[in-house]
Structure formats: C-alpha cells, structure tokens
Design a protein around this nucleic acid. Structure first.
Length: 294
DNA sequence: CTTTGTGTTGAG
DNA sequence: TCAACACAAAGG
C-alpha cells in the first residue's frame, strides 16, 4: 500500500555511503571537463553545485540546486514518487516510507511538491504536516481524501497595496509599505538580513512562497524571491491591487489575492454597440506542468 | 556581479 | 526520457 516496494531502488556497484567523493578526484580538476553525477536526475552545475531535474511529458521540471549530490538525488527521488508513483525508480530506498509521506504527497499537487523541492523546504513542510495530522486535521487512515479539502478559517485583513510600476517591473520585488510591514509583518532583528519565507494561499488554493526581508540600502520591506513568479503568472499591472490576509486561528495562514485596477480610461463604455462581443476573462494557467488529478 | 535553470542537442 | 553543455535570465 505505501511507498517502499523493494523494487524501487537503483542499486549501484560502489557503496554509496561515501557518495561520489572518489569519483570527483579523478574527474574534476585535472581535466577541465564537467564532472558528472552518478545519480539519476542529477546534473552538475558550472560552479560545482548540483542540479536536480526530472522529465515528464517531454518537459523538464527543475527540482532545484544543491550543495551535495545526494541532496539533489533525494530531490529527484521525491519528485519521481510524486510523478510516477510508488514504483518509480529512485536513487535511494525511500526512507520516509512512513505512510505519512505518502499521505503528504497525496495531499499536495505536483507543482506544490516541485516548489518545495526547489526551495529546499520539503522536509520542513513534511514534518510540520505530521505534527498537524494528529491534532485538528482529519486523520483518515483508509480512504485518503484526495482533492480540494481546503479548510476555510476566519481571516483578518492585513493590508492592500496598489502596485507601482516597479512592483510589476524588472526589479522582481514588491515593496511592502513600511507602516503595514511594521504593523502586521514584523521581522525579528536577526531575520532582517536573511528574511523569512512566507507561504501565501491564493483564492484558488494554490500556495505561493515569497521571501520577505528588509533592504537596508533602501530602508524598505520587500517581497523578493517568488514575487516575480506570482506577478507574471497573474499578469499583474501597475495599478492592480494586491491584498494580504491572515487566518486568525492558530495556524496564522497567510492569504494573497488581487483585483484589477479600476480603469479610469473608459469610465462607462457601453458594451453592446455592434462592436466585438465581450469575451469572458480567460484565466491562463501557468505554463508547464499541469495537474492531472488521478 | 553570481547563480540558476532553460534552450538545445544527441544518445539511449 | 535522459544528461551534457552553453548561456540568457533571474537573483542579490
């Protein structure tokens, strides 16, 4: 039932406890050649780090970059289990076999899992999920409710901001108005520099992750990493209004949404004047891996 | 500026 | 499907 069929690992001749250490010796410095990984789904980066990738439907999904080959290999393994099921070939025998991990994988979309792997937060999320499971989440054992069972918590309004041109431009950051930052998203002194990762759920239930930090150079609070992705995916334009909210219950889940700028160019254009018909707004999905809920 | 991860290709 | 390689785009 769970993950962990003994058939799922790729056995290698060399004991892999010391990884590719020996191989690096003769492969690396002497010849200017790129060293190559012994692990499936792992590719070398020019700077000596390791990337993980997996293919699906003629497309490559990037699973992040890592310092160790093994971490990259584990990232591949997780993605393979999510994309290809319990029987997928993996680099290591799946240690998180714990049935808990299977449930965790089942409750998150492919793109969510890929995002966790890319940002190195998969294990953090997994463990957090395990803690929650015993308490207030429904913990079914048999029929695993796969689907949109999103909890609706009472939420508080945090702030809104009309986006500036630079918020949707090439700077790839959102400036959080300082007043609101201090009021509802305070950063601890020690986290100011590094920032924190905020998980924000959108109206479709998708989780977006933003790095939130303080830029001392401009003395401003900003969403950096992740913002560009959100902005582009939703085709945000200057003048559009973004809203942040937060659950008032214990989990303090953040929520993000937006609405289009109220156009002042055409205040009340009569719609039916023999011109072209008004089409419903088409919401384009993120290009790339789509979900097939099966 | 550094690093990521996409574009691309040829092999399997 | 897969990894090697080059390098434009993203990140900081």
């Amino acid at each position: 039932k769970g993950f962990g069929g003994a058939t799922s690992q790729i056995w290698r001749h060399s004991s892999n406890t010391n990884g590719g250490a020996a191989e690096e010796m003769w492969n690396n410095k002497a010849s200017g050649k790129q060293l190559s990984s012994q692990y499936k789904g792992v590719v070398a980066q020019p700077n000596g780090r390791w990337g993980a990738q997996i293919y699906e439907k003629h497309r490559r999904l990037w699973l992040g970059t890592f310092n160790n080959e093994e971490d990259a290999a584990r990232s591949y393994d997780t993605a393979a289990l999510k994309l290809r099921g319990p029987k997928a070939a993996t680099n290591f025998v799946p240690i998180g076999d714990t049935h808990q991990e299977a449930i965790f994988l089942g409750r998150h979309s492919k793109s969510e899992i890929v995002e966790m792997l890319r940002t190195h937060t998969y294990h953090e999320e997994l463990h957090h999920s395990n803690k929650m499971n015993g308490a207030e989440c429904s913990n079914h054992d048999g029929p695993n409710p796969v689907g949109e069972n999103r909890a609706i918590y009472p939420r508080e309004h945090l702030f809104e901001k009309a986006l500036t041109p630079s918020d949707v431009g090439k700077l790839n950051r959102l400036v959080v108005p300082k007043y609101h930052a201090h009021r509802c998203l305070p950063l601890e002194p020690e986290t100011m520099q590094k920032g924190v990762i905020l998980n924000c759920e959108d109206t479709a239930g998708k989780t977006w992750r933003f790095r939130y930090s303080y830029w001392s150079s401009s003395q401003s609070y900003v969403f950096t990493k992740g913002w560009s992705r959100y902005s582009k995916s939703n085709r945000l334009q200057s003048g559009d209004i973004v809203t942040l909210g937060r659950s008032t219950s214990g989990c303090r889940q953040l929520y993000i949404s937006f609405r289009r700028r109220v156009s002042n160019q055409f205040p009340h254009q009569p719609a039916a004047l023999g011109s072209r018909p008004v089409h419903p707004i088409l919401v384009r999905l993120l290009p790339g891996y789509g979900e097939s809920t099966h």
